[in-house]
């Protein structure tokens, strides 16, 4: 098998660590996992950001704010899957974690206005459908203008 492009190695390491631990890794964790220098990891973070595959934390480039569908910080969309706890960036990504991990999952989320607990569940590879709705406040052309707000 040919050697993988560095950005692909970094991306896979990010997702493997996240899937295994529930936490989105720092640059040093990625550096240790694939045995490359931390500055190379940081450069890969920047390139992956340019490809819209991750969002480094604005105040600390060593940390990842979003590796969609996973969030590097707690959100109102916690997800339990494979016996682990994750955070999704938004309601789309709450389902996205089940889709990415190819497993059943449950997200104990809440109504965006009232705070009422609302549960999203994926069982046997299918969503348990309810009459809930997702509201997309930002047009598709502007999703990456301010991804945290989106």
């Amino acid at each position: 098998m040919p050697e993988l492009d560095l950005d692909v190695q970094v991306k896979l390491a990010i997702y493997e660590i996240t899937a295994e631990t529930g936490g989105v890794p720092t640059s040093s964790q990625v550096s240790r996992k694939i045995n490359i220098e931390q500055n190379e990891v940081l450069a890969a973070f920047r390139r992956l950001h340019a490809k819209r595959l991750l969002l480094p934390k604005p105040s600390d480039p060593h940390r990842i704010r979003m590796a969609p569908p996973f969030s590097g910080v707690p959100t109102r969309f916690p997800v339990e899957a494979n016996g682990k706890h994750y955070y999704a960036n938004c309601v789309w990504d709450a389902y996205g974690i089940a889709a990415a991990l190819h497993c059943d999952a449950i997200s104990r989320a809440s109504d965006g206005h009232t705070g009422e607990p609302l549960t999203l569940e994926v069982k046997n590879g299918e969503p348990i459908l309810k009459s809930y709705v997702a509201h997309f406040a930002v047009p598709a052309a502007h999703w990456w203008d301010d991804l945290i707000f989106t």
Binding site: Y15, G96, A99, A100, P127, H135
Partner: peptide
Amino acid sequence: RPLVNLEQLWQLAVHWYANRLTV
């Protein structure tokens, strides 16, 4: 703005993320 039901949302998630952990 537009509303998306859970079936549509699940399909969006599958399209976006089903291969996210792959090369």
